[in-house]
Design a protein around this nucleic acid. Structure first.
Lengths: 331, 331
DNA sequence: CACCCTCACTGTTACGATTCAGTGACGCAC
DNA sequence: GTGCGTCACTGAATCGTAACAGTGAGGGTG
C-alpha cells in the first residue's frame, strides 16, 4: 500500500479503490466540471477512510503555488495583552476553515523574504505596510487583509479606531463631571504609534468639550513612578481629577501608585483604562475601561481572510469595529 | 528570468550565474561532501542576491518529506495567561532558527490528522499524548518534545512540576506561621488536570509539615462568589488563615471578594498565587506568587526542538524547570 | 451507418527543490 | 602511456498533488 516512506499517497488510495489517481483527486476536490458517478465516489471515499489518507500539504502547496498558511505580521509591541488574545482567537477561527496561522514580529523578518518562501494563502497585517509590498503580494495571488488603527476607514481595511478609544475615555470622564483631564502614557517606547493615536483622540475630545488638552505623564509599570505621577496630577493647579490610562496595565499601576500615596479612585482621581482585561473587575476599585470588542474584530478578520481565499472580493464598505465603554467604579 | 508564475526559482539563479541548478542547491545548502570553488560560490550568491531568490518552502518540504513547521498541541484551557505567553515566546525563539510555529488546540483536530498533513519538523505537546501517537510520529521522522506537568521526570520530557508549585505555596504559608491552609480552585472545569496536581502537591506539603489537608473551595472569577468563599474560610473553626490560589487570576478574584466583606490580606487571610502575572505587583496588596520561569522553559524547549531537528539526540537527563517564590505582601 | 455529443474516466506532465550517479579534466605514480 | 584518484561540477530522478488533454463507450440525430 504505502511506499517505503510510510506515507499513504493519493496513488495508494487509487490502487485500493481501483481507479486512477486523477479520479481520486477529482473526488476529493469536488472539481466543478468533472462528472464522477456516485459509485466511484463512494469507492474512493471508502478507500480514503480505510487507509487514513491525508493529502500532503507540501505537495498541494507546490502544485497550487500557495499553501494553507495565513501569515500574520504583528507590530513589535510587548508580549501579552490584547494582541496575544487576538492571535489566539484568530488562529482558532482560521483553523476551522482549514487554514493555519503563523505569526511573525515586524522587526524580525522583513516582510518580503517570508511571504516568498511560504507562499501563504493570505497575509494579515496589524500595522501599516507599504503599498508597494501590498501590491507585490496581491500580484502574487496572496490575499492581504490589513488592520489599520487610524481613523481612516479605507475599503477592505479592518480598523480598530484608536482615536475613538481615547475620545471615549475623555467623554466618560467629562460626563462624570471632570474638567481637568490627565493622560497616563506607558513607558514602553514600542507603543508609541498606538499612544499617539489614542492621545490624539483624547485631545480632540477635550477640545470639542471646551476642555484644556490632557496633561500627559509617563506611568511606567512601577509603583513608585506611578505614585509620583499621581501626586503630580493631584497637586496640579487646577488639579487633574480624571486620568485616561493608555491601557489596563497602566491603569493598574496607577491605581497601585495612588494607594501608595493615599489617593483613592474615583474620589481623588478617576481612572479609566483600555482593553477590559480579565482582571479589570478585580482592581481596587473595579476598573472602568474601554472594551475593543476583539471577538468582533476577529470574526470580521476571519471572514475577510476565508472569503478572500475562497475567491470572494473584500468588502468595499469600511470595516470599523465598535469599541464600547465598560463602566465599573474607578471612573 | 522568472517563469510565467512570477516566481524566481533555483533554475533562474542557475541561468543567471551560468551554472547548473544542482550547483545552486549545493551552494545554498553548504552540502558537506561537495567541493565548490570559491569563484562559483560567489557567482551563485551574487545571482541569488540580484534576483532576490527565496527557496520555496513547499518544494523543499515535498522533497525532504518534512516542513519547517513546528506543531504545538495545547491543552484546551481558557485563553490568556501562562500558556499564551509561552506560545508567544516559543514562536519568537523558533523563528530565529528558521522554524515556524503553528498551534492547535487539543479538542479541535485529533492529533493524527494534522501531523500527517503538515509533516512538521517537530511536534511539541503541552499535555499527555498516547505513547502510540508519539511512536508513530517518531517513526515518521518527526521529533517529539513533550511538556509534562506531573512530577515524573522522564528523560527527554520537559517538565513543569505542578506538584512542586502547590507544595511551594504551602511552604510559604507555613513558614509565615499559618497552620490552617485553604486552597482556592478555579471554577473552570477545563483546568481540572492542572488543579489536581497542584492540589496534590499542596496536600503532600501539608502532610509533611503535620498540618491538616487544605480546605478546598471554588473561587470563580466573580466577586460575590469569591467573597462567600473568603467568609467561609475566615469563619471556619479553626479559621483558615492562609490560602493557596490556583493562579493569580483566582488570587485577584479572591482579594477582591475579601475587600467586599471587609477582610484584608495578609492579616485576615494570606493569599498566594501562581504565574507571577504582569499585574501581580499592582494587586491590593501586592501579590505574593510562584513564578514558573517560563523563559527557562521556553529556552529549553527551543533548544530541544532545534537540536532535534538538527539531528542531535534529546537530552537523557530530566528537564525539570525550577519554579520560584516571589514574595510581595499578600502572603 | 457515419457523425457528433456527452459521460466517466485515465495518462501524463508540471510545480521547485534535493540528491544520487555520473563525467570530463587534470595531476601524479609507475 | 596506462591507471587511478581528486576536483568541480552536471543530468536526471524524485517527492505527492492538480489539472490539461485525451479516450473509449454509449446514445441520439439525420
Amino acid at each position: 500500500m504505502a511506499g517505503r516512506t510510510g506515507r499513504v499517497t493519493a496513488t495508494d488510495v487509487a490502487k485500493e479503490a481501483g481507479v486512477s489517481q486523477t479520479t481520486v483527486s477529482y473526488v476529493l476536490n469536488d472539481v466543478p466540471h468533472q462528472k464522477i458517478s456516485e459509485q466511484t465516489r463512494r469507492k474512493v471515499l471508502d478507500a480514503v477512510a480505510k487507509l487514513g489518507y491525508k493529502p500532503s500539504a507540501a505537495a498541494r502547496a507546490l502544485r497550487l503555488g500557495r499553501s494553507d498558511l495565513v501569515l500574520m505580521f504583528l507590530p513589535d509591541v510587548p508580549v501579552g495583552g490584547t494582541i496575544t488574545a487576538l492571535v489566539e482567537m484568530l488562529g482558532d477561527e482560521l483553523e476551522r476553515h482549514g487554514l493555519n496561522l503563523v505569526t511573525r514580529r515586524e522587526h524580525h523578518a522583513p516582510l518580503k523574504s517570508l511571504w516568498r518562501e511560504l507562499m501563504p494563502a493570505a497575509v494579515m497585517t496589524a500595522f501599516e505596510v507599504s503599498d508597494e509590498d501590498v501590491a507585490s503580494m496581491r500580484a502574487a495571488g496572496i490575499h492581504v487583509v490589513s488592520a489599520g488603527m487610524g481613523p481612516d476607514a479605507a475599503p477592505g481595511v479592518l480598523t480598530i479606531p484608536q482615536t475613538v478609544i481615547g475620545a471615549m475615555q475623555v467623554e466618560r470622564l467629562a460626563d462624570t463631571g471632570h474638567v481637568r483631564i490627565g493622560y497616563a502614557a506607558p513607558g514602553d517606547p514600542r507603543l508609541r504609534d498606538f499612544l499617539a493615536l489614542r492621545l490624539e483622540g483624547a485631545r480632540t475630545a477635550c477640545a470639542e468639550r471646551g476642555l484644556e488638552p490632557p496633561v500627559l505623564l509617563d506611568v511606567p509599570l512601577d509603583i513608585a513612578a506611578a505614585a509620583a505621577a499621581a501626586e503630580q496630577w493631584h497637586s496640579a493647579d487646577p488639579a487633574v481629577t480624571g486620568v485616561c490610562a493608555y491601557n489596563d496595565e497602566t491603569a493598574f499601576a496607577l491605581l497601585a501608585g495612588m494607594r501608595r500615596v493615599g489617593l483613592s479612585a474615583p474620589g481623588d482621581l478617576a481612572v479609566i483604562g483600555v482593553d477590559n482585561d480579565k482582571l479589570a473587575p478585580f482592581a481596587m476599585p473595579p476598573l472602568t475601561t474601554i472594551d475593543n470588542n476583539l471577538d468582533v474584530v476577529v470574526g470580521r478578520a476571519a471572514r475577510m481572510i476565508v472569503g478572500g481565499v475562497a475567491g470572494r472580493a473584500l468588502p468595499s464598505s469600511p470595516q470599523v469595529t465598535p469599541v464600547s465603554l465598560v463602566v465599573r467604579e474607578s471612573a
